[in-house]
Amino acid sequence: MTTNQNDIVRQLATVDLFARCTRRDLRIVARHGDRIEFRQGTDLVRQGDRGDAFFLLLEGTAEIIREGTLVGRLDPGAWFGELALLDPAERAATVTAASDGVVLALSARMFKVLLRELPALSAAMLGALARRVREAGGVVGDLSFLSS
């Protein structure tokens, strides 16, 4: 394994999504990921594009922009791009680098292979998606309460 991959494994070990993965799992993820360095202002994904990769922010920060409006901020350990792969559709938002940084990118194919082959990763992914649905449901519930 290269030093690069060792670094990636160390970084992955600190990410919630991979908390239940073994070190061997992390090595597999590191092997199949592309480590991409980016500069501030780079679009990491662009709203409306076809989704063909999953991204994990290893270093730096990014902003989520939907229809020109800032809707969120991503810090190291955050991940994005999975929805367009799990349910093929256009990217729902643009993610732009707020600083220089590094992402680990998995192609659509490897993302699906790793979900299939690494149960700890797929369980964590399902859990995270469920949390997002719940949070989104809470927002909807709050909004309906306010409007009544």
Binding site: H32, R35, V113
Partner: peptide, 25 residues
Amino acid sequence: LRYGLWETEPVELPSRSTPDTELDT
């Protein structure tokens, strides 16, 4: 998964389109 021969589609970032930066991986 660890040692096998895999085809890999390189991931591209949308705002990088020149040959010099596209594959800066």
